[in-house]
Design a protein around this nucleic acid. Sequence first.
DNA 1: ACGAAATGCAACAGCCTTGATGCAGATTAG
DNA 2: CTAATCTGCATCAAGGCTGTTGCATTTCGT
Lengths: 188, 188
Amino acid sequence: MAERTLRADAERSVRAVLEAAERVLAEDPGASMEQIAAAAGVARTTIHRRFANRQALIEALAASAARQLAQAVDDGRPDTAPPLVAMHRITANVLQVKSAWAFALGLPADPNGEAAALHQDINRRCTVVLKRARADGLIDEAADLDWVRRVYYALIGESLHGDADNADPDTLAARIIDTLLHGAGPRP
Amino acid sequence: MAERTLRADAERSVRAVLEAAERVLAEDPGASMEQIAAAAGVARTTIHRRFANRQALIEALAASAARQLAQAVDDGRPDTAPPLVAMHRITANVLQVKSAWAFALGLPADPNGEAAALHQDINRRCTVVLKRARADGLIDEAADLDWVRRVYYALIGESLHGDADNADPDTLAARIIDTLLHGAGPRP
DNA sequence: ACGAAATGCAACAGCCTTGATGCAGATTAG
DNA sequence: CTAATCTGCATCAAGGCTGTTGCATTTCGT
């Protein structure tokens, strides 16, 4: 993992390839290295110099995206901010990262890969926030927190499908949390 | 569309191929025709006799699955049964179909294909049920029904990810509808 | 039982993709 | 500036997948 420091231009190439891979593969998961290289403005051989296999590229892509997602969660201060505030900030942050790396984050995580560990860590932090929310009376005592977390993820994922929809992350986040906590039923 | 009546064994082959395609492609969307043929217990050439292209096979798969999904919705009597009953029955039915044809139903629908029309029809029926539920006071007057429908779909999709989970469709359906209507917040 | 339909098998050509290699020129670090 | 690094380009071999065809054999419909 600890690759010797790359030269500046090489690092730029790697980033360009990863971003191009996200764009191209999102539209066609079976796209060729050639297509990815073209989208990155790079020769195909350059990709092969940095990533041995197609799979190596994919794993690097997944790991990169997972790191950004973990950062997005951390930025919301899940351990210290008031639960409702943390949930809102985290949701808004995650929405942005997920919309930019939808393909990479939807990848089946290799159990021994870096991405899997990161996702597990994210799950932990998410559960922490939910527990704190429950302690504050925001979530029902009897609720199955694992199910709540899965519903939360699903709501985030669904929010991203709305294309030209209201693209403001804060508005979307508000709706997600409102739906998560209160559902669609009539308000008192 | 109106293919001349196939002989009984031919029809069996087609079914076997579609079921095998669902199984194989769900695990590896890039799997070869050879793998699908093997899983179907059929020679690769037989597939090519019934489906000109790989794409033709995929479209047929999507259409077949969409038909079953539409049937599952219809079986819940969305127009006549009491909204809550219809929602529960439809959800349970859909869960079963979706778990059996997850890959095919997740396929990007060709706008001019049969599958797209069916999905549109399903959306319509779903909206009808939701409107009836709102008229009965089950859903808030101010709720955005389009969002509610999308959340409903997302909850169904999420429920299928739980593998060896509680596999009883009725239990899962009950949780889905409860979450959709009330969320995770504290109960009165 | 008879003819039509369907299947398996083998073989083929065409195409695309993957990796690898060598080399000349551009870019960067110190 | 100078040497190391990086890149583009051209090329190559190997392998896999697709779609098709011909023929012998089995299965079905009536």
